[in-house]
Design a protein around this nucleic acid. Structure first.
Lengths: 103, 103
DNA sequence: ACGATATTTCCAGAATTATCGAAATATTGT
DNA sequence: ACAATATTTCGATAATTCTGGAAATATCGT
């Protein structure tokens, strides 16, 4: 996970609708949710949703598996974790870290 | 820190140049760096840099304090921490968290 | 006041992103 | 084969973002 890859992930996460999608899928657990279920939750047009999901898939932030007519989306926990880790280690290792160590 | 605010911050962090700026300032510590110093490090035109810094300031991710001719920029550690925290708690509280607890 | 340094604002063009209806594709059950 | 459901792709428009040269602004030292 280099800085550019992290930036690409953060860019995708940095849209309200997409951040909601990620939150939904994370909360849904390892089984994730179908595209249709996400659509129900967010109440946005199918084509708009499909584009946003496409962004997230292209960045690897979510995975997809077809089960019959339904396309199941799951959060890529390890990648999300990597992004958070990089953000923490590379970009938050200043005063806050010192404070935390100091208690 | 609600989801929309977090999305705004992530959007700003989600650009390679801006993520580099943040990293520089975080590593620079509480005193931060002048705009000129950041420009030296990144090697980009002043106006381009100024725009990016403007983005970060508007999102509150960095602060500025004028000292004579020099404008000192500092990372907003608490805000960065809030973003990471929200991302962790709201969006990474799935399998990864379970794994971590399990060891 | 002036010249030098630091940084922003103005301006414009190119590129990218967001939105969503309509049409297309994929899959299932009958 | 057909109707129904699930999802994507197409196509078009509007909006936003990115970039950087040139000009403007701010501050300092003399």
């Amino acid at each position: 996970m280099d800085l550019d890859h992290a930036a690409r992930c953060l860019e995708k996460l940095g849209h309200p609708t997409r951040l909601r999608i990620i939150r939904l899928l994370v909360r849904a657990g390892p089984d994730g949710l179908s595209v249709g279920a996400v659509k129900e939750h967010l109440g946005i047009p199918a084509s708009t949703l499909s584009h946003h999901i496409g962004h997230l898939v292209s960045a690897g932030l979510i995975g997809q598996e077809r089960r019959g007519r339904i396309l199941r989306c799951t959060a890529n926990y390890p990648l999300l974790d990597s992004v958070v880790t990089l953000l923490t280690e590379e970009c938050c290792t200043g005063l806050t870290a010192v404070r935390k160590r100091a208690g």
